[in-house]
Amino acid sequence: MTASIVDIVEEVVAADVAAYGVGWPEKVPPPETVIPGDGRHVEIPGGARRVDPAGRRAAVTRRAPLVPVAALLVVALLVVGGILVYATHSAAPAPPPAASAGSSAPTATASPSADPCAQAPSVAPISATFVQQTFSTTYVTTVSGVGTCGVTLQWGGPNCGTWSPQAAQPASGSSTRATMVWQHPHPPCDPTTDHSNVTVTLRIAYRAGSLLCSYQGAATGVGPACVKQ
């Protein structure tokens, strides 16, 4: 029995979909994280997992299987001598985890430690929302796991207009929502579209060190993961 061209087309397409997925991953920003210098595993929403001993800022991307799917299909065709083999499906690696439309950027997580107050809190990347009507940007993040360890939050960065809070803020409890609002009308601020020359920062000081979250500019978006200082 000889496979029809339609069968072959469907097999090639199905094998590609099984190996590489289908859809619009570009619609959702890919999960991205900063790996602390200790090379530990970082969990990514959706199940991807990666180790980066160099501690560099690394975009976690969909990894392509090494063997082209169509090559597997050709081998199968040659071996069976014209009978289409469905082994391609089983030989193909599992599809990569799909990025959830509702997923947010991952959080940097703490290493285990005997002293809970020496442990870095978990901090989500800064999320910024620009409101055109008021020419202001609101920066928000969530700091988790600080308990009663005397953690403080200090915003900084804006170079014009007004922003608040400017004083260090205490954080406590299981989860603290940290918010800063920067009003940057033109004038007094430069008439740039997004103030991309400004780095907004949030320093989270805890007993054994500090974490630094940053966000470039005043346009709406999500910043990189926070890093240990």
């Binding site: 590609d16 920003p29 082209p68 169509a70 090559a71 050709v74 929302t129 978006g221």
Partner: peptide, 22 residues
């Protein structure tokens, strides 16, 4: 060509959006 790799790899990727999902 003799073989076909990932079809996605042949297409121009989208640019990451500027804004965050509300």
């Amino acid at each position: 060509w003799d073989e076909l790799g990932a079809r996605r790899s042949l297409l121009q990727p989208e640019i990451r959006p500027l804004g965050a999902r509300p």
